[in-house]
Each structure stands twice: as C-alpha cells, then as structure tokens.
Simulated scan of single mutants.
Amino acid sequence: MPTCKSLIHIIEVIMLELYQFELSHYCEKVRFILDYKELPYRKIEVTPGIGQLDVYRMSGQRQVPVLKDGATVIADSTAIAEYLDKTYPDKPIIPSDPKLRGLTLIMEQWADESIGINARQCLLSAIGRNADLRKSVLPSNTPDFLRNLVGTDFLAGLGIGLPDPTKSAQDTMKHDLASLCFILQEQPYLVTDQPTLADFSVAAMTMYVKFPEGPYLDLPAGLKGKGTPGIADVGMFEPFFTWRDRLYADYRKASSTMPSSSTSSSGPTSINID
C-alpha cells in the first residue's frame, strides 16, 4: 500500500506542467481549457529572457505557452488545445460535426490573429497614456520613488515613452467586440450550445482590453478590472464583458497560489509577450 507521501509524489510526476507568463493571453487560453476539462496542472512561470532558454532547450522554440505531459512537450496554444482534446476527450472543446468544427477553428484563428494582436497594442498604448495603469503593472515590492517616477511624464521626457495610441488597433477592437455582441444576443456561446475552443480563445484574447476582476489570475491588484480606456469602460460592449464574466465564473478556477517560478521572480512583470 503506497504511503501518503508516495501518492503525492506520483501525482506530482503525472501532473501536467504549463510553462507560462501569467500575463500572457495565449497562456490564459490554455489555462481556461485545462480548467474546463478539470485537468490538474502546475504553472511554471518563465522569466522573460533567461528563463526562455530553458523553454528553448525543452521545446525547440522560446515562446510560451508550452505544455509538458510526461515525456510529451507541446508548444503553441492551438497545438496544445488540439492535443488536450485528443488526449483528454472528456468535455470536448472542438466539435466533431464538420461545419461546427470548421467554424470553431476559424473563430479561434481570428481571435488569435486579430483580437489578440490588437488587444496587446491597445493595452500598450493605454499604459503609455495612463500613469495609474503604468504603476499598476509594477511588482508590489517596487520602491515608492520608482513607482512615483513611473507615474510621471519623466520617462516620456527622456524619449523612453511607450507606443502612441494605435487608432487602427482600437478601431478594429471596437468592431470585433461589437460583432461579438451581435453573435451573443440570442445564443449562450459562440458556436454551439456548449462552450468550445472559440469561446475560450475569445475570452482569453480580450484579457488585455479588460482584465477580469475575479481571483482567476495572479495579477497586481491595480490591474483587476482595468483595461483600455474607451473600450473597457464603454457601455456598448457591456453585454460581451457580462458574457465573459459568466464564462469565467462557470469554468475558470480561482488561482489559490502564486505560480511556481523557474527562476527568480523579483524582476518586473513583463507584458512583452510573444
């Protein structure tokens, strides 16, 4: 009969490992899927730069997310989603019906390549324009003098400012969110009457335009519920964010602990995500 200690060791050995950035919306897509399928996993926070060398040695590329399932290593959020649906078929996220399958995969690609990219540009622009948001992305142990400095226009005066607002990205995001509101007017999910990869992709990719308020992510407190002014606070898009909040409440598990780190986590949180 195995002891409690040996059982814990067995569980640790077989548990899925997600190499991630906590603030990555592509990693959030994978976390959504893992939670929906009720698969236990361990988060391994990758330090941008040096930590990505370990990711490269393991997966042959430096980007996250990377999922390790025993001896199997899978990179890229789409490849991970397809692997999880094939290997752990309970609660499928990709429909078997050809038409619905095609719609799901097309919508996931649209979310990754349109919403995800434009949402990141919107957030970077908002950080450059909003002092409170700039301070919110700093680690909690940042010295007060540095926090106050970041909250001023000193950096911009030195020519080190963040990108100017990207009107094209903001206009595209508004168009995408309006389209999603229309789709969701008369149906509970984007493709079928059950959540699919399309739903989890769209919910995760919109994280940067408005961070969820619940206990789902290990975020600085000042970031929760914040996002891009002119998008996150516009009533026209409230039906979408209400839908997304319900998706989080129904399927995303609360983050009870900070992610384990592959290297020191004392540096600033990075949002320069590949």
Rank of each mutant, 00 (worst) to 15 (best):
M1N: 02
K5I: 13
S6T: 13
S6N: 10
V13H: 13
V13Q: 15
L18T: 09
L18F: 07
L18Q: 05
Y19K: 00
F21L: 03
E22S: 13
L23P: 01
Y26G: 04
E28S: 11
K29E: 06
V30R: 03
R31F: 06
R31D: 08
F32H: 12
L34V: 05
D35V: 10
Y36L: 13
K37G: 02
P40F: 07
P40A: 10
P40C: 08
R42Q: 15
R42L: 15
R42P: 07
I44M: 14
V46D: 05
T47F: 07
P48A: 03
G51Q: 03
R57K: 15
Q61F: 05
R62W: 01
V64Y: 00
V64L: 02
V66T: 09
L67Y: 03
K68L: 06
D69N: 12
A71F: 12
A75I: 14
A75W: 09
D76A: 10
S77C: 12
E82Y: 02
K86F: 11
K86T: 15
K91L: 05
K91Y: 11
I93R: 11
P95H: 09
P95S: 09
P95I: 05
D97V: 02
K99M: 10
L100K: 12
W110N: 09
A111L: 08
A111Y: 01
D112G: 12
E113N: 13
I115L: 12
G116W: 01
I117P: 05
I117W: 12
N118V: 09
A119W: 05
A119Y: 07
R120D: 06
C122M: 06
L124G: 01
L124V: 06
I127H: 08
I127Y: 12
G128Q: 09
G128K: 09
R129K: 15
N130Y: 07
A131H: 14
K135H: 07
K135M: 15
S136P: 02
V137S: 03
L138Q: 04
L138M: 04
P139H: 03
S140Q: 13
P143F: 00
L146N: 04
N148S: 14
L149F: 14
V150K: 01
V150R: 01
L158E: 07
L162S: 10
D164K: 15
T166F: 15
K167W: 09
S168I: 15
D171Y: 05
T172I: 14
M173D: 03
L177D: 00
L177R: 01
L180D: 09
P188D: 03
V191M: 03
Q194V: 13
L197E: 00
A198Y: 00
S201Q: 10
V202K: 03
V202I: 11
A203I: 12
A203H: 07
A203K: 01
M205Q: 15
M207Q: 04
V209Y: 07
K210M: 05
P212H: 11
D218R: 11
D218L: 10
G222L: 10
G227C: 02
P229D: 04
G230P: 00
I231G: 00
D233Q: 05
D233G: 02
G235V: 08
F240M: 00
F241I: 05
W243K: 05
Y248M: 11
A249E: 07
D250H: 14
Y251D: 00
K253W: 11
K253R: 12
S261H: 09
T263F: 14
S265I: 09
S266W: 15
G267C: 04
S270A: 11
I271P: 00
N272E: 13
I273T: 06
